[in-house]
Design a protein around this nucleic acid. Sequence first.
DNA 1: TATGTTTATCGTAATATTGCAATATTAAAA
DNA 2: TTTTAATATTGCAATATTACGATAAACATA
Lengths: 110, 110
Amino acid sequence: MGASKTEHFTESHNSIAILAKALGHPARVAIIEYLLSVDTCICGDIVNELPLAQATVSQHLKELKNAGLIKGNIEGNAVCYCINEKTIAGLQTYFRNISVKLEKKKNNCC
Amino acid sequence: MGASKTEHFTESHNSIAILAKALGHPARVAIIEYLLSVDTCICGDIVNELPLAQATVSQHLKELKNAGLIKGNIEGNAVCYCINEKTIAGLQTYFRNISVKLEKKKNNCC
DNA sequence: TATGTTTATCGTAATATTGCAATATTAAAA
DNA sequence: TTTTAATATTGCAATATTACGATAAACATA
């Protein structure tokens, strides 16, 4: 055993989990916030921004990209990464919906 | 190496990552949504709801609790789990803030 | 007290993630 | 064309996660 039994869960549950998992490492949260803070999204400097080796940062970027949280554009021999607004908007909606439902319940007992 | 270098990141980045990581498994997303859907929060039936063994579900509940996403109340020999509204509200705010900032940027180039 | 019910914990196997050095790839610049 | 710069990929070691059977702990009830 050991492997995650993803096939036993719904598409919906899996897709939220994939996004959450991608944000489940401080380096990847830091990358998102860095991309948010810079004006230009010329982005090789992410490596300089983080306390990790270039290969490791590249791997984290790949995971964020696979999850759809960021997009990457090749510009010459550099790469421009930036946030995928739609994905963030989806997460915002997801948590807002939960909050609204909780609001309506008001018998959340614990 | 292999261990996550959490100590090299900010508190803020780590705390978001901890929450996201806790939601980074479809079983835990399913648990949250189940808790949201039931009126009573008498919750041993989470085990029946999920395609996982009791020990595994218990482990997932522990992780959600450690992350602060759910709360557990002992009621006789059963346990009542329910969603921690404040934590969800915090996540909602986090993603809303990112969306607002992205809105203002409008030079997100890719 | 003895028994059943519910939940947590332990031990362990399978698998996944993290991190980095080394190397490959790609494109600009000399 | 050669060199340099920026990223990605590979290979591997260390560690973490996932899952579950077995068992323990806590409590209700007969």
